[in-house]
Amino acid sequence: MVVNKKLTEEEKATLENRLKQYESTLSISPKDPVALEGTAVTLAELGEYTRAASLLQDLANEKQNDPDVYRLLGEIKYELNDYEGSAGAYRMSAKVSKSTNFEVLRGLTNALLASKKPDEAVKFLLASRERLTSERSSAAGAKADDAQMKDQPEVVDPIQVDLLLGKAYSDWGHISDAASVYDQIISSHPNDFRGYLAKGVLLKENGNPGDAERMFIQARFFAPDKAKALVDRYARK
């Protein structure tokens, strides 16, 4: 993530100096991919999203198979409230990537939900779950070879994907489907606080505070110390 970061004056000055260096390179070599990417990322960090998006469009034309370029473009277009454009960029990132990236899953899901397309988000996440199952099987098969494992991409946490799926179902108004997803998390991972927390939020949002409170108590019990404050914050909302 390179957006929405609060900068100190010193950090801002450092970024502005870096931007000048990249722009100097681009004045000589306008299509230099390293300078284009560096300029775009720096502009994004400075909050100049419109200029960053324009440069990333140019960079995507030069590096059409680079999933990170499309992912960053999706991130920036989301900040510009161009949710359709954001979803398109994230889809391209997923298409050209050799493995599933959680930031892309989350980004595309958020863009689709923001553009009022929860049904598309659910369809995408269900397909992603199937792809992840295949990737996990491939990774498991490579465990015997340590050298090969070094080249294996990091496999996405399936609970995180299920949490996104539950949210998409909830936004779609399919509350029972969302609850079912969270129940599956709780059943498969009874010591993981996230399933209890997600179901607690769902119950509370849908007028069932008593059962929600029981979920929050369970979530707090299983949450690591650093996450207990998060549970308390949702419980108080």
Results as ranks from 00 to 15, higher is better:
Pro33Lys: 08
Tyr70Gly: 00
Gln152Met: 14
Ala179Asn: 14
Leu56Cys: 00
Leu73Pro: 02
Asp192Trp: 04
Lys77Thr: 00
Met1Gly: 15
Thr8Ser: 15
Asp177Tyr: 11
Glu23Ser: 13
Leu15Ser: 10
Asp146Gln: 11
Ala89Thr: 00
Ser134Arg: 13
Lys167Gln: 13
Pro209Asn: 06
Asp146Gly: 05
Glu120Thr: 08
Thr100Phe: 02
Gln57Arg: 14
Val156Trp: 07
Leu80Asp: 04
Ala35Thr: 02
Leu125Gly: 10
Arg106Lys: 15
Ser93Gln: 04
Ile217Arg: 14
Arg214Ile: 05
Ser187Glu: 13
Thr42Ile: 06
Asn17Arg: 14
Lys77Pro: 00
Thr8Asn: 10
Lys226His: 08
Glu205Ser: 14
Leu203Phe: 09
Gly207Ala: 09
Gln21Ser: 14
Ala60Gln: 03
Thr100Asn: 06
Asp162Tyr: 12
Arg71Tyr: 09
Val156Gln: 06
Lys199Glu: 08
Leu202Glu: 06
Arg220Ile: 10
Leu59Glu: 00
Gln21Thr: 15
Lys150His: 07
Ala179Lys: 15
Glu130Gly: 14
Glu213Cys: 05
Asn101Glu: 02
His189Glu: 06
Ala13Pro: 06
Val104Ile: 15
Glu10Lys: 11
Tyr169Val: 11
Met149Trp: 05
Asn191Val: 12
Pro209Phe: 05
Ser128Glu: 14
Gly85Asp: 05
Asp157His: 02
Asp183Cys: 13
Ser138Gln: 15
Ala139Asp: 10
Lys98Cys: 06
Ala44Phe: 00
Met92Phe: 00
Ala13Lys: 14
Gln57Asp: 14
Ala60Tyr: 04
Asp225Trp: 08
